[in-house]
Design a protein around this nucleic acid. Sequence first.
RNA 1: CGGGGUAUGGCGCAGUCUGGUAGCGCACCUGCUUUGGGAGCAGGGAGUCGGGGGUUCGAAUCCCUCUACCCCGACCA
Length: 623
Amino acid sequence: MAHAPAHEVRPGSGRVFLFVEHKTPGPYNGAVSGWSPPVPDITDPPGVAMRTTEFLLATVKEVPSDAEVISHQLMLRAGMIRKVAAGLYNWLPLGLRVLRRVEAIVREEMDASGAQELMMPAVQPAELWQESGRWDQYGPELLRLKDRHQREFCFGPTHEEVITALARDELRSYKQLPVNFYQIQTKFRDEIRPRFGVMRAREFLMKDAYSFHLDQASLQRTYEGMYDAYEGIFRRCGLEFRAVKADTGAIGGAASHEFHVLADSGEDAIAFSDAGDYAANVELAEALAPTAGRPAPTQELRLVDTPDCKTIQALVEGYDIPADRTVKTLVVAASDEVDGPLVALLVRGDHELNGVKAEKLPEVAVPLRMATEAEIRQAVGAGAGSLGPLNLPMPCIADRAVAAVADFTAGANIEGKHYFGLNWERDLPLPREADLRNVQAGDPSPDGRGSLHILRGIEVGHIFQLGDKYSAAMGCSVLDENGKDRVLTMGCYGIGVSRIVAAAIEQNHDDRGIIWPAAIAPFTVALLPMNMHKSQRLRGAVEALYGELLAAGVAVLLDDRGARPGVMFADMELVGIPHRLVLGERALDEGEIEYKGRTDEDSLRVPLEGCVAFIKDRLAGIL
RNA sequence: CGGGGUAUGGCGCAGUCUGGUAGCGCACCUGCUUUGGGAGCAGGGAGUCGGGGGUUCGAAUCCCUCUACCCCGACCA
């Protein structure tokens, strides 16, 4: 027939128009002309508008002063997002293109892992949360709503209840197991303090998956599959990340790993060994007891007047004592297991109390609460700056490092006085020992291999072995091969999709703007004509190249605004497009075009003829 | 929830102390000149000064009150 196939390309859609000769008339004869299914090509982000005159390129020079972290500033400046209210954002077309690419990677890897996508409602009935018990347990972070009939609902911060109810209704037999369902959904958590833009927003896009199993071994297999899938997702997103052992926290359960994107602005501290594979959230990382053991006493016990010494720092500076020979006495509310209202936790002066570890002690009230100054004075008769273990009228628990210190200094429980030269088992009995402190850089790794380094991380993924907490509470079971009812065991697996976008920027930027990893860039190539309005010939060449790049499946943004060169350069660098093609008259005369990668020092000239092939090779990593 | 702060055009800010009828930069619109690193000149549009109440001849400015937002802390994927 007259038409050649596959020559018109709908910009950005990844679709190609196919002309097919109709042998017989009628719409359903099997071969019709029309848009093809999307042509898979990872270089082609979604969306249609590819000219700056048809695209909301909402870049700005100045930025609201409340944007603290670089990703927030750059997302605003590049015109990716705009704030609607605290923790709520509009995603502008540019930002949405990136979000959709991340989402696509997550979806592909989840599908490849065997998980099935579904979608659950954002708004959930209170009844389900009452069944699991979380309607009362969840605090003000849960956004509660009433409908017109005064029935109670919440905007889902997570979907364990809904999925467990679904599984309870749909799963009947062990033959249907294991299964793993996931969705990519907007969540809402009414954070006390939303900040850092979409990094810690109240409304955010999350991929959450829930798996159901007959036994732990099956859960373990799926858990490991998710671990691998997550590594694939973050690797494809071009992120530098670490998987770390994590606290199972409020959700409970057995094993748990967090995936952190490494960045100085990260809100979590993660510890990892410089020699072995050990990596854990500092909340969880075990601080080993010092191996050397406690030295023998060398000093006499003495009571010293230390007026105005209310802090460890003041002691260290005022009396020339090393901080690691001081002991801090932190008084917290006691649990019902303890006779009195308070319990004291002892950590070395140069160490920090770990709240998560403290809460795991049976003597300590949950949630952890530091005693007020008034409570301390009533119990001890001295202020918080003068406390110590000797003659302290409450139970004490000592960190392992505290138990190994000799000749130490601590408060005397008398206002303005400290004991110097204290020694366990000579001056006072050694209290119960526990791991109470945060690990520090240089501490030995708990796996016995190497020492620990500490980095900041942004949590972008979290996988949990949930066990039967929800399935038991909500009666989710199937019949096993013996016809017996078996409560299912569950796993859950989350990824902060919108947070990944911010994390990618935290990790990839310079003083000019964003530097997108190729796989999640909103556009792949920026095509910039110099003085296009002056030269019909130049305009023609640019338009031709634009069409060729689109036909080749390259997501190209043509800057046809007629802006000055400096404006175009600055905008494209701010927005972070990985590749830049600049066509000017002089180069065109020589049949060449100028190429520059976003991070390249200098541009280089390439023949205009082979330009598309050159770009394709760049994208494939050949050049 | 405790402590601190802010609210003036789309954005960033001055003006508030000492009351006199609102201004600067960026952005935006028009025209001309410009065009290889965020142009110049000229002209122009745009603000219930967060809301309500009060004092006063007169309030962005002083007083009361409410709201929103931000920072620090505790809390949390």
